[in-house]
């Protein structure tokens, strides 16, 4: 199962025409203690680059943009009661939402694990 990364610090696991999206360890570290995550509604159609979720830390609210376009099929209900999962397990249990991929060509140009690591080190 390939994992892609964006320069907005999101990760995308692709399995067939479905993708799971979350934010990276680097992103959660930058945001600090997360107290609330506003997730999209199931069934919502989101466009690449547009607002998909909002992460509230103690200090500020930050937008999470859709890394690819698609229809939301599932959101991580564990985050309602325990938003700190995004801090403790950002790249596994703290996932945000799943969607059906409407255009696989949007995956081209995203970074792989190695490229993302290099990108973060350059910041």
């Amino acid at each position: 199962m390939p994992r892609y990364f964006t320069d907005e610090h999101e990760w995308i696991d692709v399995e067939g025409d479905s993708a799971t999206v979350g934010i990276t360890d680097y992103a959660q570290e930058q945001l600090g203690d997360i107290v609330f995550v506003e997730l999209p509604d199931v069934g919502a159609v989101i466009d690449k680059g547009k607002d998909a979720a909002v992460v509230e830390s103690v200090k500020a609210a930050s937008d999470v943009y859709a890394p690819i376009s698609g229809e939301i099929t599932e959101t991580n209900s564990s985050l309602e009661d325990d938003p700190a999962l995004v801090n403790s397990s950002p790249e596994e249990d703290g996932w945000f939402f799943r969607l059906t991929i409407s255009d696989t060509s949007e995956l081209e140009g995203l970074m792989d694990d190695k490229a993302y690591k290099t990108f973060v080190e350059s910041l």
Partner: peptide, 11 residues
């Protein structure tokens, strides 16, 4: 002062 319900902050 305002006490909000839920977890979403108003800023």
């Amino acid at each position: 002062g305002l006490l909000l319900d839920g977890r979403m902050p108003a800023r």
